[in-house]
């Protein structure tokens, strides 16, 4: 008729935001112990996965965001590269997607290194998950606003680095905004330990959290679980973690507690009464001593 509609999206058309953990400390050094999958192998799995997503539907869209230690950036966007097929693959050994992604990744790593401040970091080096989550959500918002016909977005975090506690608030905010805009966050943890953040992220947003037992079979995990479009998820049973522990732990002894004291200002949790909040420094009013409080409580039933 008048024109071929500019967008023909249907329910199973997906927009996959893939957050790639590019923490160099994760992939290098004594990496053989952290992940049994070396980076090239890992990337092979991921790239094949991306290709398979694009294969499933001509309208599927894939965006890759690199999560570095100091920065994060978009390194591949299948929608923007559609027009430029002319600069054909460099040596025919790999698809265009792959070569383009790799060159962008290289640039990104150089930039990320330039931004790093100290020479040899001590302790845990975590990647900037909050930043890449925000980038992904921004992109999704743009897609949402582009019109009534848009692909169904979802986020997939391929995370290996440990959680960065200082990002807690930012990540939680990202999670809640994802929840609000009904974007599921899938997480595939490739590192040595589970990620509490991603567990919560997937739980809250209704995504899938999975930590592959066999790193060699990463592609199989990706294609079996994470390639499932949102429409099909209504009909399928996907692996769910056995449980997410939402119990809080006290800040003073890091014990998991069922009942405790909460700072009314910063919501820090303590297992026993303190005079002052050790986190924000708020001075607590003199709590009613044990005797007085129980007395007060008890009076009522007696009357």
């Amino acid at each position: 008729m008048a024109s071929i509609p500019s967008k023909l999206y249907s329910d199973d058309v997906s927009l996959l935001m893939l957050l790639l953990d590019t923490n160099p400390f994760l992939w290098t050094g004594a990496n053989t112990t952290t992940t049994s999958l070396p980076f090239p192998g890992f990337l092979t799995h991921v790239l094949s996965f991306l290709n398979s997503i694009l294969l499933l539907n001509q309208l599927n869209q894939v965006v890759v965001i690199a999560t570095g230690v100091n920065s994060c950036d978009y390194i591949y966007d299948s929608s923007s590269s559609l027009q430029k097929t002319a600069d054909s693959s460099e040596n025919g050994r790999m698809p265009i997607l792959c070569s383009r992604l790799l060159s962008k990744l290289e640039e990104f790593v150089i930039e990320d290194e330039r931004l790093s401040k100290d020479d040899s970091p001590e302790g845990i080096v975590s990647s900037l998950l909050s930043g890449s989550l925000s980038l992904a959500l921004c992109y999704i918002q743009r897609v949402f606003r582009s019109g009534p016909l848009h692909p169904q977005p979802r986020i997939l975090c391929l995370q290996g680095s440990p959680d960065g506690p200082e990002q807690y608030v930012a990540i939680m905010n990202a999670i809640f905004s994802a929840q609000r805009s009904m974007v599921p966050i899938d997480s595939c943890v490739i590192g040595a330990q589970h990620s509490a953040f991603l567990q919560q992220a997937s739980y809250i947003t209704g995504g899938v959290y999975l930590k592959p037992q066999l790193p060699d079979g990463l592609f199989q995990y990706l294609s079996t679980v994470f390639a499932t479009d949102l429409l099909s998820r209504n009909f399928l049973r996907l692996p769910k973690p056995v449980g997410v522990d939402f119990r809080a732990s006290c800040f003073c002894h890091k014990k998991t507690i069922d009942m405790g004291y909460i700072c009314s200002v910063c919501l820090s949790i303590f297992c026993k009464h303190h005079k002052k909040c050790s986190t924000c420094g708020s001075v607590f009013g003199q709590a009613l001593g044990d005797t007085s409080s129980t007395d007060r409580k008890r009076k009522t039933p007696e009357t």
Partner: peptide, 11 residues
């Protein structure tokens, strides 16, 4: 497994 080996310098 150890969480992560950070004996490497950034460079």
């Amino acid at each position: 497994t150890r969480p992560m080996n950070c004996t490497l310098s950034t460079e």
